[in-house]
Amino acid sequence: MANKDSTFGAAFVGFAASSLCLGILSTQAYSYFKRYPLDKRFYKLLVAFLWLLEVGDQCLIAHAVYTYLVSNWGLVTILLAKPVWSLVLQITVGVVTGTIVKLNYAVRVWRFSKKNILVTGLIFLLTFGELGVACVYTYQSFRLESLADIGSMKMIGTLSLALGMATDVVIAAALCYFLRDLRTGHSKDDSVVNSLIIYAVGTGGLTSVVSFTTLLLYNFMPDNFIFMAFYFVLSKVYANSFLAALNTRRVSRGRGTDAETTTMPTFLMVGKATQRTVQLDPEAHGQSPISPNKSDMKSSLSPMPSHHYAEAW
């Protein structure tokens, strides 16, 4: 007989954890729209779409948990019936969220790497590979005669989770490698780069850990719902990491990715030598005073727009 703690109990815990993550995501979405009212429409629509997608994902999880824990309360035999449709569909919805976030990270790698086709192409390949395998897994799940037979699709499920984890590792490694080349030797600029590297490792490490844990549990304990509990949370971890990246940008009158300008070291200045003007005494060097070139003065004194770097990050 199935253990209720490792099946129904695990599903309930996963639902509670995913609800908490959705609350954090909602707070981040609210903070984004409040802090960056002049952000580009693309980012606003993307944030809204991700939030709606995760709300829909949570509704699917809630329906599945309600079906197993309330409508069929105490009936362990429900595990021998066909999987409820919402539980199966949630698999694909969760992967779609991860795909959107990873594609945005791939764009960052593309910009930071100065359009490195090989690395960026690998990330795209892994991302769409995971999406394709997950769709196959969803299709096969709809054809299962019993939820207890979910372990029979271990190969497809393992491949999908492994591709997702590999994508996270490649993205984090690529960002760290290419961000390292943006160091200028100036402490202020390099501190920004170091912060971005730490952030890339942190977000990539977090998603990788959740994916790896889900992968291990699915392979060693496929007959319970513990791995499902971790999978319920995974997509919201991706969405939260993306919104955190948007919300940690420099705030300048709510402009965000529009046309933020500043004379202080910003994301755009990373990788570019800080232009400094050196005042020399012409007579001390045996030279006649020469008026500086206007274009040079303009390039060294004009504030440098940081919206390009903000878009990249």
Rank of each mutant, 00 (worst) to 15 (best):
I78R: 08
L22F: 10
A62C: 09
V76T: 12
L25W: 00
G14I: 03
K82Y: 03
L22E: 07
K34V: 01
D57G: 04
A29L: 01
F15N: 08
G23Q: 08
S19M: 10
L50Q: 03
D57S: 07
L20P: 05
Y36N: 00
L79C: 08
A81T: 10
K34S: 13
F15P: 02
C59E: 00
D57M: 04
F42M: 13
V70W: 11
L75Q: 14
W73Q: 13
F42C: 01
G56Y: 00
Y36R: 00
A16F: 13
V65Y: 06
E54Q: 10
Y32D: 01
H63W: 08
I78F: 09
L45P: 01
A62T: 14
V55W: 10
C59V: 06
A29T: 09
G56Q: 11
A48Y: 11
G74I: 07
G74T: 01
L53E: 02
K82N: 11
A62E: 09
L45E: 06
L80M: 12
K82Q: 14
V47C: 03
L22K: 02
K34M: 09
L38Y: 14
A29E: 00
F12Q: 13
A62N: 08
L50K: 04
I78H: 13
A11I: 02
V65L: 03
Y36A: 05
G74E: 13
A10D: 10
W51Q: 02
L53R: 05
Y68W: 08
L75Y: 15
K40E: 10
G23M: 05
T67D: 15
L75R: 15
K44W: 05
V55K: 05
L46E: 04
Q28N: 15
